[in-house]
Computed example of a mutant assay.
Amino acid sequence: MSEKKAPSVLQGFKAFLMRGNVVDLAVAVVIGAAFTGIVNSVVKGVISPVVGALGTQSLDNYSSCLKAPCTGTGANATGVRILWGSVLGSTLNFLITAAVVYFLMVLPMSRFLARQEARRKAKESTDEVVEVTELQVLKEIRDALVAQHNSGRIGS
């Protein structure tokens, strides 16, 4: 019996790299990095100034003192300080970023893809109707020929 050799490590690595999903993932990471820059610039350049005009631009300074005395900042701070403003600011930043991604990128792309799918289905249904119609015409021709053939026998 012939023995099959196990693929070498380099052959396995080459096969791994040549699979489509690895290349797709690499492209997605690169596009995602570029897309992050677009989203961040929209948030920082458009959304944040609007939010800042309505209220404060930085929530990081808002805090509550859990155990007094809360004095100083950083390494010189005393007491126990809850930095709820920082959490609120990060949460708002996430929600704003998610809204920008959804309303400016995901929603328009979903609508575009839905329109293309509807066009594709409409084209398929039109093709189906034509095929069904042709089949019906052929059946009618067959039936007419059979009827004509049968009527010719009866009269002979």
Rank of each mutant, 00 (worst) to 15 (best):
M1W: 02
M1F: 09
K5M: 12
S8C: 05
V9R: 08
L10I: 14
G12F: 00
G12R: 09
L17D: 05
M18Q: 09
M18C: 14
M18P: 03
N21W: 09
V23A: 04
A26R: 08
I31R: 03
I31C: 04
G32D: 10
G32H: 07
A33S: 13
A34Q: 13
T36W: 05
S41A: 15
V42C: 02
I47E: 00
V51L: 09
A53E: 09
Q57H: 09
S58Q: 03
Y62E: 10
S63M: 03
S64N: 06
T71N: 08
G74L: 09
T78F: 02
G79F: 06
L83S: 02
W84Q: 12
W84P: 01
G85N: 01
V87K: 03
V87T: 15
L88R: 00
G89E: 01
S90Y: 11
S90Q: 15
T91V: 13
L92E: 00
N93Y: 01
F94Y: 13
L95Y: 06
L95G: 04
I96T: 03
T97C: 02
A98G: 06
A98Y: 05
A99I: 12
V106H: 02
F112W: 11
A114F: 11
R115Q: 10
E117N: 14
R120I: 14
R120D: 08
K123H: 07
E124I: 11
E128Y: 07
Q136L: 15
V137N: 02
E140V: 13
E140F: 05
I141W: 04
I141G: 04
G152T: 05
R153Y: 01
S156V: 01
